[in-house]
């Protein structure tokens, strides 16, 4: 009887060494945020076994990386503000650009940004915006032009907000003419007080894909991500996307390599693979988010290239403000956020 645990242990050992035997790569990302077939093609071509691990939001990802001191994962896809935070905390390692042949495909527009000057530690994968989603069957989209419109009393108990502190505060900060990366306590307080006024209108802080409640007919108005709208429109063309005039929220998700990564070589191969034009093209076609890859964009159909939801006009992009790390001010936001959700 006693032999059994020992046997079990032996089997497990054998299994875990078997896992280690082949060349592998641990990717940590939102689920399905890289098309399944893209991963499979990469595996087929390189013989590298990809283990695709997932998280539900940036914060959970950061907590897990932090807890394990950057060990265990080879590729992670954080949003810009976390790239800057993780870089400063020494959780990332430098990307060796000599190993990348497809770097030239990236459009300079999204390179060398304040969150990672010179892109020493990160290379952009996808970007997108957070704007207003409207179901045109119920609401005339032309009546919604700004974040401020959401504050209208007639939407009581109707709105969907994303369950993301930075995005929700972005809305109120912009409405009041402040920067989305404001660290000024007075400005944040003003935004918080404004959000308190919005709360009676809020039906739900959405924790899964925001297009679903729109498609299910549970909400007709609220915040939504650009890619979600593209995906939703395939099934339901009534769902419209509005760039609020105060400014939509813009974010970039980038590839980084954690400092404790074990398969650095494979990680570079993977990044280089993802930077290929035809791979970038496929990603946009499947996910509906925007690519920073100029060569990939050129391969897209005319229709997608000219879709203002995926590739907003130069006018919108000129004023676009991307999310950045705001350091210790985050605590301030978190405190207000908790109060907001508790109903104060």
């Amino acid at each position: 009887m006693i032999k059994l645990p020992a046997l079990l242990a032996a089997v497990l050992m054998a299994m875990s060494t078997a896992l280690h035997a082949e060349e592998k790569l641990v990717v940590y990302n939102w689920a399905e945020y890289i098309p399944e077939s893209t991963v499979a093609d990469f595996e087929k071509e390189t013989g590298i076994k990809v283990e695709y691990s997932t998280y539900e939001n940036n914060e959970v990802m950061y907590s897990k990386i932090k807890l394990q001191k950057g060990k265990g994962y080879d590729i992670v896809v954080p949003s810009a503000y976390l790239v800057s935070k993780m870089r400063q905390e020494g959780l990332l390692q430098k990307i060796d650009k000599t190993k990348l042949t497809n770097l030239k495909n990236l459009s300079p527009d999204l390179l060398d940004k304040p969150y990672d000057p010179g892109n020493g530690y990160s290379l952009p994968y996808l970007w997108g915006s957070t704007g207003i989603g409207v179901n045109s069957k119920e609401i005339d989209p032309s009546t919604i032009t700004s974040w401020a419109d959401l504050w209208d009393e007639k939407w009581q108990g109707k709105l969907l907000l994303t369950d993301d502190v930075r995005e929700v505060f972005h809305m109120a900060l912009k409405k009041n003419g402040f920067s989305t990366n404001s660290t000024n306590p007075d400005e944040v307080k003003v935004a918080y007080e404004d959000l308190q006024k919005l709360m009676p209108n809020v039906l739900v802080f959405n924790a899964d894909a925001p297009r679903e409640p729109f498609m299910a007919g549970d909400v007709n108005l609220g915040m939504i991500w650009s890619g979600e709208v593209i995906m939703a429109q395939a099934d339901n063309p009534d769902i419209h996307y509005v760039f609020p005039k105060e400014g939509a929220g813009f974010w970039v998700d980038s590839f980084v390599i954690p400092v404790g990564a074990e398969n650095v070589e494979s990680a570079h191969k993977f990044i280089d693979y993802m930077l290929r034009p035809e791979v970038g093209q496929k990603v946009v076609e499947e996910l509906g988010y925007s690519t920073p890859n100029a060569a990939a964009k050129a391969l897209l159909s005319e229709e997608l290239q000219n879709n203002p939801v995926i590739f907003p006009s130069a006018e919108i992009m000129k004023t676009a403000e991307f999310q950045n790390d705001i350091g210790d001010a985050m605590k301030l936001y978190d405190g207000y956020w908790e109060k907001l959700k508790t109903g104060e």
């Binding site: 939102w30 399905e32 899964d208 894909a209």
Partner: peptide
């Protein structure tokens, strides 16, 4: 965990 993480693209 995998299902809960299908935030960006839906279940």
């Amino acid at each position: 965990i995998r299902v809960f993480s299908m935030v960006k693209v839906g279940v």
